[in-house]
Design a protein around this nucleic acid. Structure first.
Ligand SMILES: [Zn+2]
Length: 277
DNA sequence: AGCGATGTTGGCGG
DNA sequence: TCCGCCAACATCGC
């Protein structure tokens, strides 16, 4: 379920564990994750290079190596990525393996195979992220102003929940955090984006950054499959206020409303029917 | 056993 | 062009 906080957690973990490591061989044999021709190119491009930088844009992990190439890793619904000792057997659903000179192997696991791996020239990273991946402003790190955000909202009549999931506007918010953000803002998820008041626009942007930062601090949310870059569970699931809590009571002080579930754009949305207007 | 749910994202059609 | 729906896939729970 990797959304921005989960990918950022993996990025930080890998930065600590494998930055500077030399790659001796890469295995990539799943055509759904990466087409065979591109996989062959990636194996050639990574062999013998060192891992020089770990970055992230939205939900995309960016691994740059010496020699001018970068790997874009999307995690889909069930992606995991972490290094393990060389004598440990590869876990089920391993789709990629990066063999390191020190004997460790970085594995990318992905049961459902909604993930995707791409190889791009480091010099073309920004173009690839913007034009190919069509990623908008990073939801955590961009310096987008409240006025600029309000202008984006004003251009779109879709429900605010759908707007938040659209990676071409803000990149990084997924289904869990969209519900959490709107609950904290007391905004009904079906409110048209262009109906938000200026103060609500400001609030959504501010709360987005707050919630994502809190989730990063807790190492992300593990509902079922997500693991950190150290193959550990995240901790933010303990702090979710509405996601997955259908039928529960709203914990907002003095509210006591019921958390309900609706479906928007084919995805579950959870919100408090009493305090979110 | 079968059905419906699941963190994402694209393509398709109205 | 905008926007809602559905499939891609595998697993798990009712
Ligand atoms: Zn409430």
């Amino acid at each position: 379920m990797p959304e921005l906080p989960e990918i950022e957690t993996v990025r930080r973990d890998l930065e600590k564990s494998v930055l500077g490591a030399r790659i001796v061989r890469v295995k990539a044999d799943d055509p759904l994750i990466m087409p065979p021709s591109e996989a062959r190119r990636m194996k050639r491009a990574l062999k013998g290079q060192t891992i020089d930088d770990l970055d992230r844009c939205g939900k995309v992990l960016v691994i740059s190596v010496s020699g001018g190439w970068s790997v874009l890793q999307r995690f889909g619904m069930t992606g995991q990525m972490y290094p393990q000792p060389g004598d440990e057997p590869l876990p089920p659903c391993t789709r990629l393996v990066w063999e390191l000179e020190d004997g460790r192997r970085i594995v990318y696991r992905d049961a459902r195979r909604f993930g995707e791996t791409r190889l791009v020239k480091t010099a073309e990273l920004q173009r690839a992220l913007g034009e190919d991946c069509r990623l908008g402003h990073d939801a955590l790190l961009s310096d987008l102003s409240a006025e600029e955000f309000a202008a984006l909202l004003a251009d779109h009549a879709v429900p605010i929940k759908n707007f938040l999931l659209d990676q071409t506007h803000l990149a990084g918010i997924g289904n869990i955090y969209a519900s959490e953000i709107l609950h904290r803002c007391r905004i009904h998820p079906e409110t048209p984006a262009n109906a938000l008041l200026p103060r609500q626009a400001r609030e959504v942007l501010r709360v987005t950054r707050t919630v994502l930062a809190e989730a990063v601090a807790a190492q992300g949310t593990t509902i079922s499959d997500y693991r950190t870059g150290e193959n550990l569970s995240g901790g933010y699931q303990k702090f979710l206020r509405v996601y997955g809590r259908e039928g529960g009571k709203c914990q907002r002080r003095g509210c006591g409303g019921e958390v309900v579930r609706i479906v928007q754009a084919g995805r579950s949305t959870f919100f408090c029917a009493k305090c979110q207007k």
